[in-house]
Design a protein around this nucleic acid. Sequence first.
DNA 1: TTGTAAGCGTTATCAA
DNA 2: TTGATAACGCTTACAA
Lengths: 339, 339
Amino acid sequence: MGVNLKELAAELKLSPSTVSRALNDSFEISEATKQKVISLAKKLDYQPNPFARSLRENKSKTIAVIIPERINSYFANVVDGIEEITQAHGYHLLVYCTQEDVEREKKIVNLLMNGRADAIVISVSSQLTDNFHLNLLHERGFPLVFFDRICSEIPTTKYITNNYESSFEGTNHLIQQGCKKIAFFMLSKELSITKERYSGYKDALDQAGINLDSKLNLTFSQNEEQNIESIKELLISDNRPDGILSSIGKLALATYQAVKRTNLSIPRDLKIISFFADSTVASLLNPSLTTITTPTFKIGEECGKLLIQKLTKPKQPDLPNQTFVIPSKITIRSSTIEI
Amino acid sequence: MGVNLKELAAELKLSPSTVSRALNDSFEISEATKQKVISLAKKLDYQPNPFARSLRENKSKTIAVIIPERINSYFANVVDGIEEITQAHGYHLLVYCTQEDVEREKKIVNLLMNGRADAIVISVSSQLTDNFHLNLLHERGFPLVFFDRICSEIPTTKYITNNYESSFEGTNHLIQQGCKKIAFFMLSKELSITKERYSGYKDALDQAGINLDSKLNLTFSQNEEQNIESIKELLISDNRPDGILSSIGKLALATYQAVKRTNLSIPRDLKIISFFADSTVASLLNPSLTTITTPTFKIGEECGKLLIQKLTKPKQPDLPNQTFVIPSKITIRSSTIEI
DNA sequence: TTGTAAGCGTTATCAA
DNA sequence: TTGATAACGCTTACAA
């Protein structure tokens, strides 16, 4: 495409190594030649070949991000946060979406074993059961950072929100609003976030002396319509809950759609609180939705900063086995408040 | 990280070139050695170095996607569609988000001049005024595909929806519902989609004999709160519209928020139709929003297919200067229907 | 301060 | 059918 180092050097009647050093601002090169080199490079619009450089230096200046869903403000926001930091440092982002499919996730991770990226940031698929592929990656010394949906057994850095506490508080809020039969909606029992959020829910019920009814703990699929129907079935059953804690945003939307298919009304017959990323949408729903929102952009930024630190400074230690907790915020809206 | 070709060859007591050919299934290699090579490669988990290969072959197996916003179902869906196709062919996606900032867009495009990606798929920033950077790229023979927000002057392949017709029909729908003062909301006058959608709007008014009031044609910024306030000002002014055609989804949400700050009600005092990607959200808004939705995933798939064709088949011609139109669908909901 | 040469891991040409 | 060698474009010892 453009001009390369050799041609640039020929034009300048200098050796490629001198030109390389000049462009990399080496102290061995005189100011005069540096200027000459830089000005011609600019004039000819010289762009170093990234692959030659990567091959030579054994690093790609690229970070891979693996998320379960793209049409999801939560993940989209985190990626925005990561890019905000990494772009400023000249890093590129390979973004992969698994569509919640473990096989796809494994394939992607395997493809990344070859050094195409210098690090991976991942929030795992809801269908994940074993973490062999990620373990292997980590054991080989590959920089790996988790956020949100983590693998707790893998000793590396993780960014999560205070799932337990948020869920505990959210459940408590429902209890305070008079709910006696509180359902818990989740995507998969295996997810780290599910476990933590479930614990918070359970402990809040315990503390209030409410018996946990396992028939009110529902696991959902990737099929939207099917989810809506399941919820509707629950809502018209004898065992109808009067409160719902949804651990995933889209299950709250599914609930709203299910309610529309019944004679019930929120918050009169049913109160609902949900982990939810998009507060504009939450506030415009009818009724507006009480949410638990995580500072996702911040999480992305933190991931980005950590990785830039690790990848750009020489002789960095392994990423610490540490879990950073960035607290969520509960915003009470009409879906849990009796009018 | 893992083993490389030379080591694999040494282990097999073969030359690197033989091993390379065996792995690439060359017809010159005997079945016997092919099997030996492949089995050891699998056993040692050999992964070819992508940079060595890219350097040698002068292609990256990577496609760059540039979008204005990540937290936007429209763009997220298109990227999903692209990935659906390209991933199956072993291509990787570098995804860049400009946050509607032209300078950022230019920087990104310039970074991609060096061959890091084999092609670019882009929907331009709303603030774009000159397309020098994209023109340069195209003139250098770099494969470039536009979708949605295109640069019509650059002779390459574009994927859009039937903006004019959708907008015309949408406006007509408002007129049929009795609207006499119809506003048009946009992000920037420069965008291709704005121009086309505006034309459709204008012609529909003309046809109905309604005078276009330019005070009802509003351009908005990136500042959410400011947008809401502008809309509110309009709504409480003497020149209040009774219908709105919003050319951008988030301006419809801003309108809903603005309405909440007034005594007005949709659809009684104000009817609204909007280009909008997320039909779940549209149906759950209060009142549910009449939308014009584009098959975005399909657009992504088409982009992907075209590029795979171009990049994987030998001796492909330049991408044709052709605009593919994938029609949108109007879904009438409560925001435009008097109860 | 600058130049020479080797090497990163592949693949392709030519020779055996 | 296989092997030796050069080349892709860059950086970095080592020499000058």
